[in-house]
Design a protein around this nucleic acid. Sequence first.
RNA 1: GCCGGUGUGAUGGAAUGGCAGACAUACAGGACUUAAAAUCCUGGGGCUGUAAAAAGCCGUGCGGGUUCGAGUCCCGCCACCGGCACCA
Length: 1007
Amino acid sequence: MGNRKLYPFDIIEKKWHKVWEKRQSFRAWNPGEQIPEWHPFGKRHKLSGKIVDQKDLPPKFYVLDMFPYPSGAGLHVGHPEGYTATDIIARYKRARGFHVLHPMGWDAFGLPAEQYAIKTGQHPKITTEKNIANFRRQIKALGFSYDWSREIDTTDPKYYKWTQWIFLQLYNSWFNPETNKAEPISTLKYPPELKTEQERRAYRDSKRLAYVAEMPVWWCEELGTVLANEEVIDGKSEVGGYPVVRKPMRQWMLRITAYAERLLQDLDTIEWSESLKEMQRNWIGRSEGAEVIFEVVDDGSLNLSPEERKITVFTTRPDTLFGATYMVLAPEHKLVDKILPRSWPAGTPELWKGIDPASRSTPAQAVKAYKAFAASKSDLERTELAREKTGVFTGSFAINPVNGEKIPIWIADYVLATYGTGAIMAVPAHDTRDLEFARKFNLPIRVVVQPPKEGIDPVGFVDDGISVNSGLITGLPTPQAKQKIVEWLEQQGKGRKTVNYKLRDWLFSRQRYWGEPFPIIWKNGNHEPLPESELPLIPPPLDDYKPTPNGEPPLARAKDWVNLPDGSTRETNTMPQWAGSCWYYLRYLDAKNDRRFCSPEAEQYWMDGEKYQGKGKVCPGVDLYVGGTEHAVLHLLYARFWHKVLYDLGYVSTPEPFYKLVNQGLILGETEYTVFTFPDGSYCSASELRDIGEEATPHGPMMVGYHKKTGEKLYGKKVSEDEVEKSADGFVLKTDKSIKVDARSFKMSKSRGNVINPDNILEEYGADAFRLYEMFMGPLEMVKPWSTRGVEGVYRFLGRVWRLFIDEKSQVEFEQSLTANPEKAERLLKNLKLSDSIKEVEPNAEQLKALHSCIKKVTEDLEGMRFNTAISALMVFVNQATTWEVKPVSVMRDFLILLQPFAPHIAEELWEKLLVQAGMKPVLEGVDLCYQPWLEYNPQMLVEEVLEIPVQVNGRLRDVVRIPAEATQQEIEQVALASQKVKPFVEGKQIKKIIVVPKKLINIVVG
RNA sequence: GCCGGUGUGAUGGAAUGGCAGACAUACAGGACUUAAAAUCCUGGGGCUGUAAAAAGCCGUGCGGGUUCGAGUCCCGCCACCGGCACCA
């Protein structure tokens, strides 16, 4: 790239940023606010100077970005992808007359700032502020039409005051299963047997939506904190990839499980992508089945109470009860230790007695050894490897309620304590895991479901079939068999129909400093809420931000803060990072309110589509939410949960927060080519390798592959694009075409060194080109590789737009005077002259057609969020307009209205030129470009007098004929048949039928 | 293994069941230039064919099907990407 700019984007962009800021162009107005005389929104909607009421305001459109965590690394090119998409929509909707709310803020609590604080002793606030300032600068440089007056920061006490307040709402609520919603804790009814206040308190505390529980949690030594299930991936922390272990700790929990069903059901009411909804459904993991009670066989020596004698299992296949040949408890199951007989029953095979030969003398010893073995396995080990089944016989038996059969009770870690009842009935014939286990320990396998088709082995058949050898359900197809057996169990009091969810309650406390402190104090072992008047509760500064040596959170170091005069102490845990992002979209509605998290008026106006949009489509909540898939389950599930609680308590008016959600696809690094070499340095074709992939090494990620024949591990070497060429299938080395090269794009990462810094792109091509490129790459939702060459392409397009309007001679003079007086840059812009070819003339038919087909395409594509094709329509227009000797002002004006959402800076500058130098009349006089009304296309302008109609014979293209638009079907047929190119294919054959698609195509079918 | 998504030129990608490859990138040729950059113009899926054309055939991951007509719809596969994964 030469250093000469195609147009002075740097000057223009700075200029318009200042203008927009000064005019507060993108400020949105809450009901009750007075709109100043000068504001363009007031002018557009005739509300200037008025104190507006909800009913005066035009329909709202709330378009939201997932706010970023301001990391020290600065903006990633992935951020502006979503932000540009929402900005284009925001600008388009504004032009369409909507009252647009388009805010931005910072999700600023987080680990990196805290870890930096641990290293340096510097308060994390300082790092955070610095990073926010950098992010703000970078985002502002892109010219997004945010209402910056609503900017929020989750680490600002004015913000987290309300995060803490919402926590108190959760704390002071319980979920009433009868009404299926959260209610104030005061409506809780106590069982009559609870007499003392202490008993009632314990009962109350056990029902709260925010409650304390001692439970095994994921403890991450490296991070010095516990993590939520959702933050643990493959036995490692999602952040940093550190090992985690299970550890019982006292923790704050949020009762999200109470909302499992509603979180699932309401997915059907919102417009999210199917894949995203599926992810949430999977996470919630609803499964219908039955609980079945098995009775432990006790000859009296076990001393079991009647309650302890019952083992309840959960199964989704009650129809296979007759095939249950053993049962399994999780090692952590409560009853495990109670059911152990003193000695092995007669005839217990050695194989059943456990993993440790030394401990086989009694069941208690075997079980103890097995429990120790299972507990020692990290979760990584549990999920990894071939998952060889392990387990041990307890020595006890239970009675299968359907046939009275005595079956052995085992413990095994393939049964999870945390799902269902922590116990299962094992049906090896019809469950893959049970089958594996039964085969390993030589347990009986009994077929009770016949596959519907011949030739399928019934052992290991897990789908629906016909019940066999199953007493009263024999002969029934699986669904009916399930129903009938459950009815029978219910009659007998041996079981019932039930639903289970994979979703667990949300572990809500962290042993960190840089998070919201809990507004909770502890008095005599009981917790109490802080009064609302004491919010926000601000954490004290520390000298040392590490956890204390005995594992207490860092806040425990601040003795003066923790210990209160009356002897009570503060909770020292903090909330997880997700807390602040659970409700930020509500704070934007009324960001400065210090009496409430958000006023009811603002909430109702901006969130409730139905009431204030009048007729038409109802879009409750945030109308459009755009962000990455990385938040598919965590943030989006948590936020929906909080929203539903607030809805139940009457604080918000919609059951769902985000009506329409779009996931932007990841932007990968530029395509990389890898050639593999043998240790001696000679090349190996990628086609001879299997399992090509990345491997982390101390020098960063390396490409590795394994030789298909020898299994030898080979390393890859990066080669540049000019060293390779495309062959029949895939790329090969230019120097040796027998050597295939691996070509793929990778996620951008520091260690790989393929990160594109937005600052550099902005510097070289400007914000408009950057915005345009990110949208032009392809459909928003798709994963796509970055290509800096592609940026140059759209940059050239903007250069063509510029030259369409600006006189070349004045451009040259401008550049010269700019070199001489760079400090006068902005004033020199005035010297740029409009091209002489732009004239106040009536547009001709061709020009109108070009304009109106552009309006049509851009409008339709914006409605469908197909930005890439909208931009190509703009390019088509410019390519056509470049050939016009005279360009009518009106046509060029309308083009700028279409261009503005995509490339606002250049559009504003050229609009101003048309106003000042060509005396252009805007569509709405005195209104800024960003509030000019959108254009309607006129179908009349697109009508062709002569159409080019393709002629097919038997579906194959033979000719294209020109036919007057008003031609009749017969005339069209005649012209087509008369075509010299068509004749040879028709002559001598019988014409069976002629299909004429009006204005589109004609197909002659011959026999 | 289960669920979801995607497969189209050298590349990113376009195509309400109706001219496959819009628009752009890369490439090649030309104009302008002392030269280069920038700009403008032209070309282009493959094969056969021809002096050049014309013309024909084949082409949207693979195999079938529906249809006058399929990248698009249906059935069966394959590959890649993402998510979940001992959840009974």
